[in-house]
Design a protein around this nucleic acid. Sequence first.
RNA 1: GCGGAUAUGGUGGAAUUGGCAGACACGCUGGAUUUAGGUUCCAGUGGGAAACCGUGCAGGUUCGAGUCCUGUUAUCCGCACCA
Length: 828
Amino acid sequence: MSYSKEIDRKWQKKWDENKLAAFDEKRIADKLYVLEMFSYPSAAKLHVGHWYNYALSDSYARMKKMQGREIFQPMGFDAFGLPAENYAIATGIHPQDSTNDSINSMRGQLKEIGGLFNWDAELATCNPDYYRWNQWLFLQLYKNNLAYRKKAPVNWCPSCLTVLANEQVESDGTCERCHQEVVKRNLTQWFFRITDYAEELLNCLDDLDWPDKTKKIQTNWIGRSEGATIKFGVEKDGEKVYLDGEELTLSVFTTRADTLYGVTYLVIAPEHDLLDSLITAEQSAVVEAYQERTAHLSEIERQSVTREKSGVFTGSYAVHPLTGEKVELWTSDYVIAQYGTGIVMAVPAHDERDFEFASTFALPIRTVIRPKAENDHWQVRDSAFVQDGILVNSGEHSGLNSAAARKAIVRELSQSGCGEETIQYRLRDWLVSRQRYWGTPIPIIYCDKCGTVPVPEDQLPVELPYDVEFKPDGKSPLAKAEDFINTRCPLCGGPARRDPDTLDTFVCSSWYMFRFVDNKNDQAAFDSKKVNRMCPVDIYIGGAEHAAMHLLYARFITKVLRDLGYLDFDEPFTRLIHQGVILGPDGNRMSKSRGNTISPDPYIETYGSDVFRLYLAFGFAYTEGGPWSDDGLRAIARFVQRIESFAADEITSSLTPSMPQELSADDKELNRVRHHSIKEVTKDAERFQFNTSVARLMELLNALQKYSKAPQAKPELTLDVLSDFIKLLAPFAPHFAEELWQQMGHEQSVFLSGWPQYDESALDLDTVEIAIQINGRILDRIHVPAAASEEEIRDIVSSLSDFETWLDGKTVRKWIVVPKRLVNIVVA
RNA sequence: GCGGAUAUGGUGGAAUUGGCAGACACGCUGGAUUUAGGUUCCAGUGGGAAACCGUGCAGGUUCGAGUCCUGUUAUCCGCACCA
């Protein structure tokens, strides 16, 4: 029987019956939690990217199983989210129905991969038995002051009357559906205080076995910077401003307190909460027009340095905390409310953006730092001087260097209560409210009498109602579901309203790795004892696009649950691997519009899943990905056929594999290739470098074929090596290898047969070829005994007949001998 | 704009982390087998007639650089409401 999809089915059924993937609690000491990022159940079928992630992670897991680890590799579905809702709006098919259909079809396709997945642990985030605990998690954060509400802008399409995701806004700022201009609207929304954990999230990165680039991305995303918060007074129409009975001040964050005397104006973000209280009557028209204009811009556009600076004067003045000088307060879109305090002190002489802004609007530019090499009369002219230097025109601080001045100025400010040293993070709190239907309802009730009231935990889940009008018409879908939205206050029993929003789906994915361990628990999100035994996840595999957000949120929630006493570890994912992206045959990202998508199904049908998996293993550097190639896949199909016909020739029932007593040179060479392959396949698969693992398997097959053709070949040795070959092949072609293993006469699965060990002594060659270089140029290659010492190699080389010719009359200055590699003779 | 990465034959990709660049394949060329095509098998295959030259480009460090440093170009990815 030649390898085909029938073989796949046969073994999938057997593995299922024999519970090959089951996790044995008794062997927990050897547990290995292998997790792939769970998938979004879209209407489309399993694509090449899913296979690339799941099949090859499974190959890793299978190798580890053969090495004696007890594998826990669960599967689930990240089932809430925007696409299902958009699909529903377009087709009228309810998200729950389309999602359930997708899950069922994806589950079937996932099984065709033939992975050792623990299906008992399956979960889908859209089921009430999952999102109930999502709500519980929200309440824990709420109770511990880690969830709060504040205003934040959303994208609003005035024509579709709906909130848009950033993804739904075209690059020109229009709605993807109706192409009308999108505006920003401020809504009160829930946030998680991830910034409370900024320092720890940063510090713990060091100890993680994660790719350096991911650590860098997270480090920059958290963005720690040391500086000072400085308070400026405010005057509007010549008087101080009071808000809720308190005198208003403007706090700015700066890393350059040394430039404080150079402040010639302040800039506040156009969408800043305080701005409305600071606009004078005469300026109100221009400022409001400007705010309106800014609402149409994206953050990326606003931060572009190449854009011409724009802004308007608010009419109010800021009061300098040291000099008491009045400087103008402007508003401009290059300042963003979410960053820092949303207000910046502008020092045009020493900051490029401020310089440009001041030049555009003829605001004063005051030099307060000079280069060390210049004298005190030096002035900034054509561009800002942004480096550290010596202070000038800075009162008693003049003459200090920048570093000393930063300390001195902040000390002086702190004495008058106008400033303090501050560590600022770029990281912002996590906005979790979504004005959408297909998500976890936020378990909060608003009562006119009692205010914001959390839903009592014994009343969870707050179920997502099925019959809802999710077509956009200006209101949140849940806000229109009268039966849902109107409720009773849990405290006073009076009429109250539920929060109409749902939670960001990143909340679901921030703790699912713990639920897998205890997915049927209806008393708690999970049993801490179980999770503490099974977690953290030993190895987590998924796309690099999650480097910043998902992975940071999951780390944050892990630390919160730890601090609340539910977990006894600090980090959710010990080791992390990112797979690359498989591109279309044309080298572009696969997309329907380009027509370059590759569907796995026909290939599985024609070649079988193992050929598909082997090709994915061999054709790409795993973490890089690359363009799809049908030729590459056919090459693998040939490799499988070669194995098959070789095995058919060699496997006979009359022979048992064994090592001969005496080894001929050919025997030794075959044995050497075998052990070299064992060593390299193991090492490369351990670091997810499957392409070279498969290359070594090809070499071993080549060696086997060459050996077996020789008249002196010993069939029992051929079989012995073939036996190891099948084991090494098994993780990468599980069904096919299992079939061959059975043909070899084994009753038990190859995955229970143990992983081959390499014999270091078998790797040794008698002689090795080394290169001879003179001043780095290769002149010859010679064979020397592998065990030769540096001195011996030197002697061999200097006694060669060509030696004097190579020297060309020059003197040897230095010998560099790299054993088993080369000799470099430095002459002059 | 900010942040992250990548660049090696005609192609996918290797290179024990500073030590013989191009492993393993694809493709191509020639040959054998075959009624033909396909399959299979054998040989060759970075460029160059050669000296030599070759890892995006320009410098540098080193006995020695694909690998380290500086600069530069090009391409790709992420940027907080896609997941």
